[in-house]
């Protein structure tokens, strides 16, 4: 028995990678659906913020991530964008991450044009694209969006877009929604949009960075948060869409269970092989 555990201690880690790949692929292929997700208060609060805005209000959506965080943040931004469009909100889109701009375009094609063909570019939504500057950009936008973005992503002057005639500064937005994979992202929006200009800030982040936002949620500086794929799946549940995050939740749960099994095996093997005694 001891030999078995000693063998487990020396197992080639590539077997673990293979087991993980098989569990994830198997659960996606089998299409098993776990019971309905519980909605956490933080996701509910983000949903309520968007849901409570009067129809026709302007909201700023900031895509502050790149394709590396797409599996977590793309379904999240799609769900929130869908909700805002259903609520008939006007959306100003932008991004602080240069590699995130194609994702805005992808989302316009896959969500806005496909599901909301009656929404008109320029009146219902505008894509400002990317601009460097980070916090300076936000402060400039609070003074005048035109100074920061003389033209939109397609080089159309902002004066020719009806939505931008009503939204001249950041202060004209009723909320800021940031999909954040790091800095610049949600923390910067909290520091400037909320702390300086008192514009409610909400959004989503990668699961890695979710714990650091707890302090901002507790202090009321952040109006709700969706953390990672789980947060995205909860928001998809709230808007009644079974998107890629909801589909991925089964694989996520099974992968977590597998990791727990590995941790248990590792610990049992560690002590059974006598390593604990040696170290003590």
């Amino acid at each position: 028995m001891k030999g078995f555990f000693v063998g487990m201690m020396r197992i080639d880690r590539r077997w673990i990678f293979l087991a993980m790949a098989l569990v994830v692929a198997g659960s996606l292929l089998s299409d098993i659906a776990f019971p309905r997700l519980e909605i956490s208060p933080d996701v509910r609060r983000a949903y309520d913020l968007i849901d409570g805005l009067p129809s026709g209000s302007t909201v700023l959506f900031s895509w502050d991530y790149d394709p590396g965080s797409q599996p977590e943040l793309y379904p999240l931004s799609a769900a929130m964008l869908r909700h805002a469009l259903r609520r008939d909100l006007r959306i100003v889109m932008m991004g602080h991450w240069v590699t995130g701009v194609p994702l805005i375009e992808k989302q316009i094609a896959e969500v806005v044009r496909r599901e909301f063909p009656d929404k008109r570019y320029g009146s219902d939504y505008v894509n400002l694209g990317y601009k460097s500057g980070q916090n300076v950009l936000v402060i400039t936008m609070a003074k005048s969006i035109r100074d920061a973005f003389p033209a939109d992503y397609y080089q159309t002057p902002l004066d020719s877009l009806p939505l931008m005639a009503r939204c001249r500064t950041l202060r004209d937005a009723r909320a800021v929604v940031s999909f954040s994979a790091g800095d610049p992202g949600l923390i910067m929006w909290i520091q400037f949009a909320w702390q300086r200009f008192h514009i409610p800030v909400t959004g989503g982040c990668t699961a890695v960075s979710a714990p650091e936002f707890s302090a901002y949620l507790q202090s009321g500086q952040l109006h709700g948060l969706m953390g990672g794929m789980r947060g995205a799946a909860e928001y998809e549940t709230l808007v009644g869409v079974r998107g890629s995050a909801s589909v991925g939740m089964t694989a996520q749960s099974l992968a977590h269970a597998l990791i727990v099994v590995f941790i248990l095996i590792g610990n049992v093997a560690y002590f059974a092989a006598g390593r604990g005694k040696e170290e003590r």
């Binding site: 993980m20 790949a21 994830v24 692929a25 996606l28 590396g68 965080s69 797409q70 599996p71 977590e72 990668t206 699961a207 890695v208 990672g228 794929m229 789980r230 890629s244 991925g248 694989a251 996520q252 992968a255 977590h256 990791i259």
Partner: peptide, 11 residues
Amino acid sequence: MARISLLIGRM
């Protein structure tokens, strides 16, 4: 959770 999400996305 984040790393598994990335694997799920690629899968």
